[in-house]
Design a protein around this nucleic acid. Structure first.
Length: 262
DNA sequence: ATGACTGGCGCGGCCAGA
């Protein structure tokens, strides 16, 4: 079973990219973040025609928005409101062999100080809430996948320069510490690092501001696919589709694929 | 020199991304 996560940065603008990744990589399930559309304007037709007939979405006007597109049926769809807001950042579905959570953790603004930056405070609260929620509602031996744009690059080699990014939102100590707590909540496996050694650079996002993203290669690994321990023996492969950063009018994030032997 | 960008909204720039 092939899962794919991608911050698409407007699903309506980049519906052709979604169709292309379906055709070229044949994922069974696609999880999108930053769809940026109310549900009534979601491009259902194109997606269903491509064979993804099972769709669970939660979108809003202008910002955020998450979607799960599947060739396989699922049940028990959920929409979760986080930190007292209805801002379309967490949906979930149940497949026969595991439960899937699609997350869009807040970006957090510029200033890494929760006292003066509400967006940063919101981000830290969001991760804390997820940690408590996972602990309260699940056990470590449940079969779960949590994936999406976590907006945090946890490791030294998940950013192009650990030293230069220590005070930049996405790689600050409070974020990294909180994400580690969230990971510990259910003993989650970070599947990218299951397949790629810790000391090897690994990115899923490159800023639009770099003229030549490939040449400067100032990336960050912000997009993640986590699984709980019962799925560990089923992990088959992992791939970051970096070439999608070169597609016409690309998203600043690229798709991440993970295959399970199920 | 994270600089030199991009999308939504809506028709002028602002907010947000990270």
């Amino acid at each position: 079973m092939r899962l794919l996560t991608w911050n698409i940065n407007s699903v309506r603008l980049r519906i052709n990219h979604v169709l292309r990744v379906m055709k070229e990589h044949s994922p069974d399930v696609i999880c999108l973040q930053e769809t940026k559309t109310p549900d009534e304007h979601f491009p259902f037709e194109d997606i269903k025609n491509a064979g993804y007939k099972h769709i669970h979405i939660h979108g809003m006007k202008g910002y955020n928005g998450v979607a799960i597109l599947s060739r396989l049926p699922f049940s028990a769809t959920d929409i979760h409101h986080r930190v007292g807001r209805e801002d379309c950042r967490h949906i979930a579905v149940k497949f026969p062999k595991f439960e899937l959570h699609n997350l869009y953790i807040p970006a957090g603004g510029d200033e890494p100080d929760p006292k003066i930056n509400d967006k940063y405070a919101h981000k830290l609260d969001f991760v804390d809430e997820m940690t408590g929620w996972f602990k309260k509602n699940y056990a470590a031996n449940d079969r779960l996948v949590a994936l999406g744009d976590f907006n945090i690059a946890p490791g030294e080699h998940d950013v192009w320069s650990h030293k230069q990014l220590l005070n930049v939102v996405s790689h600050t100590e409070p974020e990294v510490t909180r994400l580690a707590k969230m990971q510990k909540s259910l003993d989650w496996i970070d599947t990218a690092r299951h397949f790629v050694p810790e000391d090897q650079k690994c990115y899923t996002w490159w800023s639009y501001r770099n003229h030549d993203w490939k040449k400067s290669n100032r990336g960050r690994r912000l997009d993640h696919i986590w699984v709980t321990q019962p799925l560990k023996k089923h992990l088959k492969s992992h791939e970051i589709i970096a070439k999608a950063r070169d597609w016409e009018k690309p998203s600043d994030h690229v798709p991440v694929i993970m295959d399970l032997n199920l």
